[in-house]
Structures are given as C-alpha cells and as structure tokens.
Nucleic acid binder design. Structure first.
Lengths: 347, 347
DNA sequence: TCAAAAAGTGTGTGCGCACACGCAAAAGTT
DNA sequence: AACTTTTGCGTGTGCGCACACACTTTTTGA
C-alpha cells in the first residue's frame, strides 16, 4: 500500500512537500510539484481515509434545508436519511445543521435560506420546492463559493454540485406501464394531482408528461384515454364523484404525489371493474392500502435515501475531495404488497 | 467523544490496563477489571473504529467460495461485488482469497472446501449451492471457530454468522403476482427450472413453493393451474414444444433462475395470446429480451450486492467486532423495460 | 548593497488505538 | 532463605495523515 512517505522517498523530498502538493497548500517549486504528482499517479496513490479522518481534527458543517416533517409525514423520511448519514459520518468529522421551512409558505423558505447564508456552513443540502424563490438563493451561494446539493426537485437552470432523486419523467412513464399492463381496452386513466400548486411544481409536470408519453409512444391513444385532474384538499370527495360521472370507464388512477391515501376512501367499492391505483411512497397510510389491495403499485422515491445520499455526496466532496456526479438518479422501485416488506426500514 | 484514556484517568489506571480489560487479554486484578468495565459503561465508551483499524496492523484473510463465472455469466456478478468490496477494504486490512468450484460438480465443491479448511482464513463467504454437501463443511468450520457468511442460498439448518440474499419463498410469491396480475382466467402457468439439480437446490424449491402459495393463498387454484417443468440444457426446444402441446392455455412462464434467455427463443411468437415471462437477474441477454417485450418482468437478485455485502459483513465482524444480523434480506427489485436503466450499473 | 519579504522545504507532534516490552510486587518452590 | 514463577500494571512505539512551525535559500526593493 502506497503511503505519502513512499512518494516522498521516490521524489527525493519530504512528506511535508508531498502533502503541500497533494492539497494545493503552501508553496512548492513547479518542477517538484509536477514530479510528485507524476509519481503519485504512477504509484496509484490512494489516501488512507481512516488516517485522514483521524489525523485532521477538522469539523465540516453541512446545512440541510428542507420542509417541516410535522404537517406532511413524507418529509420525515428525508430527515431520517439525513440523520442516518450524520450518525455514520460524525466520526469522520461531519455535522449537520437543520434548517426547516414550511412547505406551503414561500416566505419561510426565504427566511431560512437567509439565515443559512448568514452563518455559512461548508456545504448545503436543499430541497428546492419553490422554483422561483430558489434561483436567487442559488446565485448567492454560488457567489459565496458554497457548494450545494439538490434533492427531491431537480432545477436544471442552476449549477448545483449534484442532484439526487428520481427522473420524474421516466417515473410517470413507468406509472403508465403499470396501469396499462394487462388492462383491456377501452379504458380511461386519471392523472390525479392532490393539493399541490401544479403549475409551480416542475416535477409534477414532468411526471404527467411521462405518463402521457407512455400511451403515445406505444400507440395506445386510440384505445386509452388520459384525463388530468386537480384535487383540492377539502373537496376530494365531490370532485371524485363528478369525475366518475363524467368518465364511467375510469379503470386506473395515477396519483402523482404521496397522497394516494387521500383519494382512496372515495373510490367506488365496485362498479364495472375495480379501479387500479398507482401512487408514490411508502407512507404508513399507503402501505395499508397496498396491503388491502386498494393500491396496486407504489413507486418508491426512496426519500430516506435521497437525504442520506445527499449528505454522503457532500461529505465526499468536502472531506475526500472526490468528484461528484452532477446527477444521481435513484432507481424507480416498484412496490407491491408482495415485496413491500423489504423496502420498509431497509436498514 | 470518550477515549480509552478518559476511562484510564477516571479509573486511576493506565491505558494499557484499560486495553487489557476491554480486550480480555493479559492479567488484570478482578477489582480493577470491574471498575474499568463499570466506568466504560457509565461513560458510554464507543471505540473509535478508525483508530482501531489504523492502529492494529492486522491483516484479515477472507475466503470466498463460489462457482466459476466462466460457464455461467450469472456468477460473474457476485465475484464483481466481492472484488469491489476487496478493493475498497484492502487498505484497511482485508484480503480476499477466491476458491472457485464448478457449479455442476459436487466433487469440485467438496475439494475446494477442503482446500479452504486446510489453509484456514479468518472468515468465509460461501454460496452453498449443494445442500447435502454443505452441511458437513459447515460443521467443520463451526468446530474450527471459523465464522462463515452464506449468500445466494439460505440453508436454515446451519448457524452461519449471517445470510445475505433474497427470501426465495417470497420471491416466488411475487413472481406469482406478476404473472397473475391482469391475466384473465382460465390460465396455466409454467414454473421452469433450467439445467439445475432441482432436488438439491434449496432456493429453487423455496421459489416454487412461494409461487404455488400465491395461487393458494389468493384462492385462485380453481381457475389457474401451475405446471412444474424441469428443462435440461440440451433439449429445451423439444421439451418446450411438448409442454405447449400438453397445455395449450399456457399464459405465463416463471423461470426460477437467471436463464430466461435460454427458454425465450423457443416460445411461440403468437398463439392464443402472448405468453408472459418472469425471470431473474439483469444479464445482458435478459435485458435485451426485456427491452423487446419477450420478458415482462425480471426480479433483480442483486448478485453483485450479495457478494459485496457479504465481504463487508465479514469485515464488520472481524475488524470492528460489530454485531452482524443473522439474516440480511435484499429487496425483491421488480424490473421492467421502463425502470431497467436505473438498476444497471448502479455503482 | 543590504535588509526585508517571499519562496521553498524539512521536522515534529498529535489523532485514538493495538500491542510489545519491561518492571515491580506477590505468590510459589526447594 | 534464596530462588523462580506468576500476577499486575505502566510505558513506549507505530499506524498514515494533517498541519503548525521553523529553517534556508532566493528574490525584491530602495
């Protein structure tokens, strides 16, 4: 195993000099610099991460900016992942500082972001729910040289260190397949958005686009119809009844958020064939509906993993100076009653 | 963070004594011993794993006993995972010694196992394909105090340190769901075992049991029939034709191994409804068949992950003296054309 | 021309732990 | 009583790295 000392001996310099070269710190003669780098390359030097973490007493502060888990249980999961990563990396000198905002109040997001910037950490993990309000914040961080990682929502206009999450388009596409698979024509499918500002939520738009594309690309549009529906939280029942009246051959519903459980109670128990349901995420309410057969498939967005990997990526960047891929798509896990157990609490 | 030194100070002894107590090495007065343990408990001492790995210059040898990747591409993947883990861990004192056997020759397994025992490593990772022949080997290891981790095939009669892999029973159960979903009755489904000694392969038996259970537990046996079929590698075509003749309403095939691609070319292109196929694992041949629609679903056994985690678990046990869970089930990943890309080469 | 600043380099210490070594006191032996 | 053995315990070194410090040589500037 190659150590810094080995490089030093081979290059006829001291370990201090090698250290300065490898970390771009201090002053080193250009000639020596190149020689050391070349030898390091040649010997395939890989730093011993244990020794590094042990030797440097440096503490890295990572700020996490995400919605409050209180009102929406979904957000508990990213926080769990973040916490898990912190526990694991604490020994290596990583500490996480949470900044919580209200997912329905733009102002609270702005405020927390400002607080964060006022006490700049070494890196940021952020769920940029509000598209318009995020951009100026990103610009500021960029100017400060503060690396930030996005999760949950992809905002292509910014230049984050990395994005962690699902490909929303492909996710909708997959939902199309799951509703269509083995479903005789003709049939109508509903794309249901629940209690969200659809036009301001990039990832919901992408999901719907993917869903539609499935039917278009497979040339199914002559036999299968897709209907868009926006539900507001307080009139779900009425809207559902009205939709069923208008479209008697609804055979499946694609709920684009984790809120399938909100819609489920208002489906007809029986009526010209059961209505299939595809939704997102393993909230306990959704799990129960999956078990009793109301929901056919859930697509797991692995929110816990998003938080976890976000912190890990930042640590990779900060501590180990590793290259970080700009996009880190998580798999589109298909969950049914039969394989659910292995995704719940998976370590 | 509590260090050994902190305990030493509080107990009025030296770090050497604390070390002896914590590791049960050397001689320590009983009174002092209890005092140190009590203080360690009190202070919630947790050893710094980094420092431990760094400080002890010990080299741990892990033997990996698994089939040759040459004849069956499936086995390349666990070996890849094992190799990956070794690369990652070799800096920290873990080295893997491969023992390769022929998956069709019981004798070669026995021979390699004997060689392994003759040059005992610190831990073993093994894919116990041959049920009967594995048991005595395990007994020997147990007697030697040699910790071993199982992967791929679970053998409940033994007491391994851990098992890494899928729940085969539930895996078959899930396959039942995937073939049945949206498939009108009546229909016949085939459970196809390809070129394996079925009766000596514990996990294939379990898969078939799970598959059958799906139809029983859901009370579908009056409308759906399940047929068991053993294929030998050199007569697949003839056997398939004969089966199609006997069971004209075959609507789906469950291939219990990664060899769906062997069967696929011999399915009728059209004939009273397409025949669905569910198989295992993302071999390139299977991926192509998934893409062109011949295979509907693949269940990913994550063979690479099995190898990887197996080595990691052993390292956890050997180096860090961590507790290792006796069973580590990997998720039953459902793969379709639409989400395949996110599982291939997922780091 | 000579001091001051900058450039270039080596040495030493500490991180927390494992482990070898060595010394003193107690217990055992003839 | 004069030993040997055993028991009990402290000290010291090294693992690979980060980083502070100090030292020498070169360059700069008035």
């Amino acid at each position: 195993m190659v150590r810094i000392k080995d490089i030093a001996v081979k290059a006829n310099v001291s370990v201090g000099t090698v250290d300065r070269v490898l970390h771009n710190r201090g002053r080193v003669a250009e000639e020596v610099r190149r020689k050391v780098l070349q030898i390091a390359q040649e010997l395939q030097y890989e730093p011993n991460l244990l020794a590094r973490a042990l030797g440097s007493n440096r503490l890295y502060r990572v700020a996490a900016l995400a919605p409050d888990a209180g009102p929406d249980p979904y957000w508990q999961q990213p926080w769990d992942g973040i916490r898990k990563a912190e526990t694991q990396l604490k020994r290596y000198g990583i500490r996480v500082e949470p900044y919580v905002f209200n997912q329905h109040e733009v102002e609270s997001f702005r405020k927390q972001a400002a607080m964060l910037s006022g006490n700049p950490p070494d890196g940021v993990l952020v769920a940029p729910l509000f598209y318009r309000e995020s951009l100026p914040v990103f610009q500021e961080w960029q100017k400060m040289g503060l690396p930030y990682v996005l999760f949950n929502t992809q905002i292509t206009e910014s230049q984050p260190l990395s994005f962690i999450g699902q490909d929303s388009y492909q996710s909708g596409f997959l939902a199309g397949k799951l509703l269509h698979y083995g479903q005789p024509a003709p049939a109508t499918f509903l794309v249901a958005h629940i209690a969200e500002d659809f036009t301001n939520s990039a990832h919901l738009i992408r999901k719907e686009q993917g869903f539609l594309s499935y039917f278009e690309q497979n040339k199914l549009t002559d036999r299968y119809t897709v209907v868009h529906a926006d539900f507001s939280a307080d009139a779900v029942k009425e809207q559902m009844q009205s939709l069923l009246w208008q479209h008697p051959v609804i055979r499946g519903i694609f709920v684009t958020t984790s809120k399938a459980y909100v819609l489920a109670p208002h489906l007809p128990v029986i009526g010209g064939g059961r209505i299939r349901m595809v939704g997102y995420d393993l909230l306990t309410q959704n799990q129960a509906l999956l078990q009793d057969g109301t929901i056919d498939f859930l697509i797991n967005q692995n929110p816990k993993g998003q938080g976890y990997w976000g912190v890990v990526r930042l640590a990779d960047h900060l501590m180990y100076k590793k290259e970080v891929a700009p996009i880190h798509y998580l798999p589109l896990d298909i969950i049914t009653k039969e394989n659910l157990q292995y995704y719940v609490d998976g370590e």
